[in-house]
Structure formats: C-alpha cells, structure tokens
Simulated assay, not measured.
Amino acid sequence: MSKIKTRGRVKKYRAAIIGAGRIGSGFDNSRTAAVATHAHAFKNNPRVELVGFFDIQPEKARAAAKKWSVLAYKNLNDLLADKPDLISICTPDADHYPTLLKVLSSKPRLIICEKPLTANIRQARLVAEKIVKMNIPILVNYSRRFDSTIQKCRLDIKKKKYGKVISAVGVYNKGLLHTGSHLIDFARYLFGDVLDCQALNAIFDYHRNDPSVGGWLKLEDCPSLNLVVGDSRYYEIFEMDILLEKARLRFTNFGSVLAVQKIAKDKSYPEFSVLGRPKETAVKLNRAAVGLAGNAVNFLDKKVDLLCAGQDALKTQIVCGDLLKGLKNK
C-alpha cells in the first residue's frame, strides 16, 4: 500500500498488534500526554489505522480492543488473513520467535518487534536469515534510537563536537537480554559496532536464563565502556556516563535526562580545567513510540531507512550472546 490520495485523502497503512499487554496497550491511553504503547503510537499517527489486537488470553484482546475502539481477533490466523500492512509483536520475549515465524509466513509490508528480537542467539540468527531470504523488513523497538535528543547527541559525537570519546560507563539491571540489550544497543547507536567484549560478573536478579551481566566493551568510537550491574530486586536503574575530551555527557534518571558539562576554569585554581555546571535536556522516552511509528510510515513511503532493522538487533544480540558465553567460561 503506497501513499495514494483517495478523494483528497492520503491512504493509511493498516496496523494490527499481537500481544495486548503493557507495551501493546496497557501503559497509556488516548488521553495521556505520554505515548508509551504501540496502540497509542498508531492511533497518534494520521497515516496509520489501527485495526485490531490478538492475544492468547482472549479477555486481554477484548479489553484492549474496547479501549482503543478496534477489533479483537479470535485467533492469529484471523489477524493475518486480514492482511495488515504493519504487524507489531508485543508478546513476552520467549514468544517472539514462534510469533515471528508465523507472521513472516503471511508476508506483511513491515513487522515491528519489541526487543530483544528473540530469546536466544540461535533463534535470532534464524530469524535474520529468513528476513533476508524473504525480503521482509523488521523494525525492532530499541526505543532510544527514536528520540530526537539522543539522535542529536549521536550526531554531536560523530562530528566530534566535544572531541573524542575517552571512556564510558553504563549502569543497568533486570537482565542482560531484557534491559542490558537496550544499553548495548544504545552504545552501538552512539559509538558504532562492538569490536571486543568481556564478561566480568553476573547478578541473577531477573530470570535464571537472563542474568544481569557486568563487563567491558570496546566499540569503534569508544575505546572502553564498562558495564556495571545493579540488582533490580531493590530498584531499577539505567544510566550512561560518557567522558570526552571537551565535555562529560550523562544520561540519568533511567535515561530520561541528558546532562552536559563542558570544560571550565576552576575559580580557585584557574590553572586547572574542571567541568562546569550541567545543562540538562529532557529525553522524552515516554514519547519515543511516536518516532517508532513515524519511522515505520516513512520507511513504507520509501523516504528513510529503518532506524533499527533486524540486522541491527541481531548485532546487539550477538554481543549479549558473547557476554553470556564468556560468563559460562569463567
């Protein structure tokens, strides 16, 4: 379905959602300022028509359908038979792989999948091979790629506005795949591909098959990034601290604030350079889904590339797999 005007109106892309839980439907509603779900992102975009939900728990699909004034499909085959242009996969991590295989067989225009791509690297490689062979694009929701403040920060780093990156520290918890993959993809987005990695320790604070792994990464534009892990049984955390030649960049408050400190002269000892007062900018992660839907529409209009294609997600998952493998070898 292309951008065709019908009776003076631009034709919309039809979208359906598999999984009517929190990220699919539950985190917000049509009246909230935050756009934190796939449903709200689609409803918010004038080029998308949300047509319905499917969930293995029918009552969830019916509740989401009522909430967003759309259909509740009785089964996945009914959803696929309706031939939506866009299909969002918002199921639990372990269900991504079988759901992706089923959806790929229907050959939609675009699949949007929550992170991680699959629950393990073997499945991720198989999916990546299939999408290349079948020529079906997948957009993976590593949400920080869709925020304008982070996009500008990335350009500043690439253009060396603050000089070269000296080192960085990333702090997270609640599982390497579940949350750590967000941090690794964030680092890859800012600094380029991972050239080397090493696992150092682990905390089993989320799932027995998904520990939070501490370690070290070397990336194209960051010679040293230390991964520090906390314990989500006490509180959740997600931060990035970047030291450059001319400034310090800190993503704090679960990555919702960017604080920039530029070099200044020490008032008491002017021969020394120190960091000045931080200038803070909001990172609107609670509206990143707007960018997700916008990127999907612009891609289907053949205007832009996907900000996080299946191969991007696979690279992130390979790093996670290497860290887990390194942990087992310790």
Rank of each mutant, 00 (worst) to 15 (best):
L71S: 09
D95I: 11
K130V: 06
V169A: 08
N173S: 11
R145Q: 10
N135H: 13
A168K: 08
I157K: 01
E114R: 01
E114Q: 12
V194P: 00
P116E: 15
L183C: 01
A187S: 12
Y97W: 08
R109L: 13
L155T: 09
V194Q: 01
K159N: 15
S148L: 15
V169E: 11
C90D: 15
K161E: 14
I111F: 06
Y97Q: 03
P137S: 15
C153Q: 10
K60S: 08
N135W: 05
H182V: 00
K152N: 13
A61R: 01
R109N: 08
D156M: 05
E114S: 07
K102W: 09
C197W: 00
P108G: 05
V103C: 12
L101N: 13
A94W: 11
N120R: 11
N77A: 11
C90P: 07
A187H: 00
D85Y: 07
F186M: 07
N75M: 06
Y162F: 14
V171Q: 03
C153L: 13
A124S: 14
A65G: 03
S167T: 13
C90M: 11
I111D: 02
S181N: 01
R62S: 07
T91I: 05
A72W: 04
S143L: 14
K164W: 10
L117K: 05
L177D: 00
Y189E: 09
V132E: 14
S106W: 10
C113V: 08
V169G: 02
K160E: 15
S106R: 07
K159G: 10
A63Q: 10
V140P: 03
I121A: 05
L117V: 06
K174M: 12
V140A: 12
Y172H: 06
R122E: 14
I121V: 13
Q151M: 09
L126E: 13
V103P: 09
E129G: 10
V169L: 13
I111Q: 02
P137G: 14
R125V: 08
I157A: 02
F186W: 10
I89A: 06
S143G: 08
I111M: 08
L104F: 14
L177P: 00
L139S: 02
K164M: 12
K66L: 09
N173L: 04
K66G: 14
Y162H: 08
Y189R: 07
C113G: 11
D156I: 01
P92H: 11
T99K: 09
V132Q: 15
I150H: 02
V171E: 04
K164L: 11
K66M: 04
C113I: 02
V169I: 13
L183V: 00
I166H: 12
V140F: 07
I112H: 04
Q151T: 07
P84K: 03
R145E: 06
L110C: 03
C90A: 15
V169T: 12
E114V: 08
S106T: 09
I136F: 11
K66W: 11
K133T: 12
A187I: 01
A72I: 05
L155Q: 12
L190M: 14
Q123E: 13
S69D: 13
P98Y: 12
